[in-house]
């Protein structure tokens, strides 16, 4: 018998926590898909390390969400027993891995956003959030460094590596605008001084990304129409496939433990 899905209360802070946690969980899951498939052993370990950092961040955030919600949910029910529409991650992080170039570029575009975000969140009067941010900041700083070095080398590498990462850039760029979107609920948290304003990070992100793309001899795409919907639970096609694998064990064997 398959396990039923859980429902989650809807308050601004809870929604906020699930959004950040889902970003980390879903990107961590995507990165974990490289296990056993990385081009070289050194990157196998680098990817696994990044995936574990991200899943660790998700666990901290889900743990805090469970505490705030106080409705019997925990990190496992959030991660494994919500329906597709209950996940509030950015569309960017759910995009399929593609090749190594696309994976590194996706990692860079996200990390270049989230690292300054965690730094800003460290100043939150919410001490739990500030502590989670302080731990995540160091991890994200390394993700920026590692993925940026690869973006530069692949872009400014061979004709083949340049072609692949240039294609990935065109494919992923329309998903970057969503990182800076803020809805009314989150606006309330921003106005109350609890969390930083993502919109305020946009110029800094563009500046950092432009510098790396220039070193990678890649052309920065124009700011055209941007995809959105992930923050409201509307996902791209890739997400259903991801969830079916992520949730398979808990759905097939409810309550299974190690």
């Amino acid at each position: 018998m398959a396990t039923g899905s859980v429902t989650v209360a809807d308050t601004p802070l809870l929604r906020y926590l699930l959004r950040r946690a889902d970003d980390a969980l879903i990107l961590g899951h995507r990165v974990s898909e490289w296990c056993g498939h990385a081009p070289i052993m050194e990157e196998e370990m680098a990817l696994a390390n990044m995936g574990l950092d991200l899943i660790g961040q998700a666990r901290s955030l889900y743990g805090y969400a469970a505490e705030i919600e106080g409705a019997g949910n925990d990190e496992n029910t959030y991660a494994y027993l919500r329906d597709e529409r209950g996940y509030l991650n950015l569309l960017l992080v759910e995009q399929s891995n593609g090749d190594f170039a696309a994976t590194m570029l996706r990692q860079y575009l996200y990390s270049a956003f989230i690292h300054p975000y965690w730094l800003a969140l460290m100043g939150s009067p919410d001490t739990t959030l500030a502590a989670i941010a302080a731990k995540a900041e160091k991890e994200a700083a390394y993700h920026v460094r590692h993925s940026a070095e690869w973006v530069i080398r692949l872009g400014d590498g061979t004709a083949e590596s340049h072609r692949r990462i240039a294609e990935a850039l065109v494919r992923l760029w329309p998903f970057t605008g969503e990182m800076f979107e803020v809805d009314a609920g989150e606006r309330g948290l921003i106005d109350a001084g609890v969390v930083p304003d993502t919109a305020g990070l946009r110029e800094g992100w563009k500046h950092d990304v432009a510098a790396i793309l220039q070193r990678a001899t890649l052309e920065m795409p124009a700011d055209g129409w941007m995809q959105q919907g992930g923050r409201e639970g509307r996902h791209t096609e890739a997400f259903g496939h991801l969830l079916s694998e992520l949730q398979y064990v808990q759905r097939a064997y409810p309550g299974a433990t190690w």
């Binding site: 050194e42 990157e43 680098a46």
Partner: peptide, 12 residues
């Protein structure tokens, strides 16, 4: 990249 790989492989 050697330094990064050393960090990833040997300081986990």
């Amino acid at each position: 990249l050697a330094l990064q790989a050393a960090r990833d492989l040997y300081t986990r």
